[in-house]
Amino acid sequence: MPEATFRTRLRRAALVAFACLAVPASAMAWNNKPVRMLVPAPAGGTMDVMARLMAEQLSTDLGQPVVVDNKPGGGGAIAMTALLSAPPDGQTLMVTATNVLTEIPHIQKTPYDTMKDIQPLAAVGRSRMVLVGAPTLPAKDLKSLITYAKAHPGKLSFASYSAGTASHYAGAILNQEAGMDLQHIPFPGSSPALTQVMGGQIPVMYDGMVTSLPMIRAGKLQPYAVASKTRSPLLPQVPTFAEQGYPDIDFSNWVGVIASAKVPADMAQKIHDAAYKAATNPKVRERLEALGYEAMPVQSLQELNQSLHAEYERNAGIVKAFHIRP
């Protein structure tokens, strides 16, 4: 090979090597390494199913592995610790419901500060709250349920999927605004609480749509009101609390992708775009809706952050106003 040609090729190789070194690590992420997707729940639950749907579609879109890593326990604290301990390069993400970020920190000590340590990257599916009751309850609508509760003072109760959650908040607010005195009975999750409600041991529960919807459709629960300003497309026949005079009872959780607040802005935007591309895939959306989630519109990073912080602050106010404790 002529010496001049050799020198030319050597210079080109050096330029390519320099260019690679000059590219920030965050810009090279999601191109040549597996992505780890943490889930603060056991395998098999609805949050895990959503994470696996997203991981599968992202793997297809990106052409690289996206590995789901279940880390349940501690109200999300175990998974969150793993997220914040990982390098903030975008290779470790988390799929979670917002109650881990906006409810749990108000009633238990957590190893993270939602307002400082976390950034939401994509809100994929929303689960509204719904008031459900045992099929044997004589009350068939919210007005008659309130009348029935007042006719049995001190004798009725409501279940929640945990103390200090929106499921608890909604009951406290309706008690106050409707003049009822239903006693709060918290459970470690929706499933054990719903079992008690369906069996008639506890009259009613404020629950997420995802877990209650299959039971409503099967006739094992009767719905009284949806906790939102507008009716749910999944239960269009059920009126909202707002329609029935209780606009303050407006609660829902979204499940989506979050990352450490230290992940650089360009990397965060890249993940945002990829996550929403996966979430809007027709097959993914159809599966999410079958699980009881409502598809959500694409939001900017700024909108997601503002929404999350507003929900956090609102819940802090409710906890203080109603003296809610674990």
Rank of each mutant, 00 (worst) to 15 (best):
E3L: 11
T8C: 03
T8L: 14
R9S: 06
V16W: 04
C20S: 07
P24W: 09
K33R: 15
D48T: 04
M50L: 15
L58I: 08
L62A: 09
Q64R: 15
V67N: 07
P72V: 07
G73K: 02
Q91Y: 02
H106R: 12
H106K: 10
Y112E: 14
D113C: 08
D117C: 12
A123D: 11
V124R: 12
S127Y: 04
V130G: 08
L131R: 08
L131I: 12
D141L: 10
L142C: 04
H152E: 02
G154H: 01
S157F: 03
F158T: 06
Y161G: 07
G171R: 09
N175H: 05
A178E: 04
P188A: 14
G189Q: 02
G200N: 08
V204H: 02
Y206H: 12
M209T: 12
T211G: 11
Y224D: 12
S228I: 10
L234A: 14
D248I: 08
I258Q: 03
A261Q: 05
D266R: 05
A268R: 11
H272Y: 01
D273K: 08
A274E: 10
N281W: 00
R285T: 13
R285P: 00
R285G: 09
R287I: 05
A290K: 10
V298W: 00
E303L: 05
A310P: 03
Y312P: 12
R314Q: 13
N315L: 09
F322S: 12
